[in-house]
Design a protein around this nucleic acid. Structure first.
Lengths: 176, 176
DNA sequence: CGGAATGTAAAACGATCGTTTTACATTTTC
DNA sequence: GAAAATGTAAAACGATCGTTTTACATTCCG
């Protein structure tokens, strides 16, 4: 059984991701969620709050998917994500871009995710280096993950494979 | 002197970039361009066409800015772009994401830019390697440029600096 | 059994969307 | 100097936006 709010968020995430946040109207959401607008509003507190909720759920799913212990495994997980979820760019940066940061609830959800994302990559890099942190390398790996996500929109999975190989080179160079 | 269409495109690019394409209404555009909606429509053929025109002009400016002959110079130029133009992510991918690829004129402008962008990076990498092309390295540099553009939204210019250092490592490794 | 509670379907809200039109003023051109 | 062109200001277009309300059906619970 799926709670009403979960059904809304699942449908909204798919529509926001496929058609954009602003281009997706509430009527389309109610149709996809299979409920009246009255019920939808009883569970969501408006579109801006729903956008933030979608991003929160996306953060949970994405971070769980990237629960790995090596940089190489990170890019393997990312390639799997891109192949199964499709490559339409980072949903958080897209939300931020569509709203110009003018919706506080959205801006905060994006900031929270990106902070957690940076921290996660730092943990992975540190673990991969045997517990020895390297902020510069963390930044480079983060750039590669963002770049693979963005570039795979038009270059396909090969962008993730290229990022994986580049990261392996950078790691090997750091180790030696 | 600035032609009416140039004034429209300049104003539209700034507003689209700052607030998003869909969130920017035509009334805001007419106010920013300093003309009536009647005149604006006489010069533009509607919002979708204007979006495509903005992307076309953006492509000209961006590609001219990235007219360099080495990978290191590429990232120097990108850092300069981010510092002077601001970091709000790739406007082309944002346009594509906001419209879901459903506006043919926009989708085509994005595809044309990304094709030219990939070609340009390939030329730079090839020149940097002394005329010896390396598709895999081209893909890695492209991912680094996209990643620096995306990550600098929340990491700032340090993302571009990290990408620059990573690219230098990859180039050096290829050369040896 | 009876009344909250919760749902749906659908109309309606005012606001805003992209776009066109009306009415009028100004500039350019032959 | 009259006509054609081009501009502005502003109203109006139908459509759609996010949101609320009305009217009614169903289910849950004591």
């Amino acid at each position: 059984m799926m709670t009403a709010k979960a059904k809304i968020i699942t449908a909204a995430e798919a529509l926001f991701d496929r058609h954009g946040f602003m281009a997706t109207g509430m009527d389309r959401l109610t149709a996809a969620a299979g409920m009246s607008s009255r019920t939808l509003y009883k569970h969501t507190g408006g579109k801006a709050a729903l956008m933030a909720d979608v991003l929160g759920e996306r953060d949970r799913r994405f971070m769980r998917h990237l629960d790995v212990r090596s940089v190489d495994a990170l890019f393997v997980a990312l390639e799997d994500w891109v192949r199964t979820e499709g490559a339409r760019g980072c949903l958080f940066l897209r939300a931020r871009g569509e709203t110009g940061g003018d919706l506080p609830e959205v801006a905060q959800a994006v900031a929270a995710h990106k902070a957690a994302f940076h921290k996660r990559i730092d943990e992975i890099v540190t673990a991969d280096l045997g517990g020895h942190g390297d902020p510069a390398l963390t930044e480079q790996v983060l750039v590669l993950v963002e770049g693979a996500t963005a570039a795979s929109v038009y270059r396909g999975p090969r962008a993730v494979m290229a990022a994986r190989a580049a990261a392996a080179s950078l790691i090997a160079r750091t180790r030696s």
